[in-house]
């Protein structure tokens, strides 16, 4: 865990102006990040590392948590959706500016055992952390020099995974190409039927032949995760979910970001999570 001033390499709008990908130069964070972990970002710009510029911007006051989406050499990316004022301010940040970042934080996904049938389920922006996980499960082909193997050929060499991506409309379905490049099997559902199957991503999951050897990793809205937890439970499948709560410290100190769990009563999303076994949560 480090607090650094990270240079913005890119802050690019995807599709429509609601989603952005932010690339930060943060070598020390990049080196130790694991899928499911997050960054705690002060969205107001700061001076470069050598300056004594203190971040005294009081609007917004608190940092904002974002899952680590991708790590590429010294860069760490996040993928975010503009929701309120904080993310709007973040979307206005420009290449070359610096951001005050703490990370990597939290406990990430537990990687699957060999031979497990891996199913990732993403709702909307939930693809953000699942992409990093997919990269760890099925490392991307080494670029340059040769054309990576395609389709089945490629899949034979690496761990196979299926990803279900759900959203309201076609424009809410992100990262399809990226998952494709990793050799994943991709299924899409939209509530209005503008892309893939019409309906909820949980309905899509129900159509699957789920076996106890399957593992589910899910990230998305709470109602979606709740349904997935039920499905996993009825099929006795190991399922991990990534949760969200409002945060202050992000490091486990303030006890503000708790969710209700069966044993200890409360757990901190920032420190004990954000990834939990679906079985421990009181939904």
């Amino acid at each position: 865990m480090l607090q650094i001033k990270a240079e913005i390499i890119e802050n690019r709008e995807l599709l429509s102006a609601i989603y952005y990908r932010l690339s930060l130069k943060a070598e020390k964070i990049a080196r130790v990040s694991k899928p499911g972990q997050f960054l705690h970002i002060k969205v107001n710009p700061v001076g470069p590392p050598v300056s004594h510029g203190v971040n005294q911007e009081i609007f917004p006051l608190l940092r904002r948590p974002f899952s680590i989406h991708r790590v590429k050499r010294q860069n760490v990316d996040i993928l975010y959706r503009v929701r309120g004022k904080g993310t709007e301010i973040l979307s206005q940040r420009k290449k070359g500016q610096y951001l005050d970042v703490i990370g990597p934080l939290g406990k990430g996904y537990k990687l699957p055992d060999k031979g497990a049938k891996i199913i990732l389920v993403a709702g909307g922006i939930g693809v953000a952390s699942l992409y990093f996980l997919a990269e760890k499960i099925a490392p991307p082909p080494i670029s340059g020099g040769f054309t990576p193997l395609e389709g089945e050929d490629r899949r034979r060499g690496v761990t196979h995974f299926t990803i279900l991506i759900g959203g309201k409309k076609a424009e809410n379905i992100l990262c399809r190409d990226e998952f494709e490049r990793l050799g994943g099997e991709i299924k899409v559902s939209t509530e209005d039927g503008s892309l893939g199957r019409k309906g909820l991503v949980t309905d899509l999951l129900s159509t699957f032949n789920l076996k106890p050897s399957s593992v589910i990793y899910a990230c998305g809205p709470m109602e979606m995760l709740k349904k997935i937890a039920e499905i996993a439970r009825s099929h006795r499948i190991f399922c991990q979910v990534s949760l969200e709560e409002h945060m202050a410290c992000g490091v486990g100190a303030c006890r503000g970001c708790v969710i209700r769990v069966k044993r200890e009563r409360y757990k901190r999303v920032c420190k004990d999570g954000p990834v939990f076994n679906s079985e421990e949560i009181i939904w």
């Binding site: 009081i58 608190l62 409002h246 945060m247 202050a248 303030c254 006890r255 503000g256 970001c257």
Partner: peptide, 18 residues
């Protein structure tokens, strides 16, 4: 501690009920 939610950001402030 108290029932969540325990934190809310307000204008230049933080509301907590830990």
């Amino acid at each position: 501690g108290n029932l969540p939610p325990r934190l809310v950001e307000t204008a230049a402030g933080l509301l907590n009920s830990i």
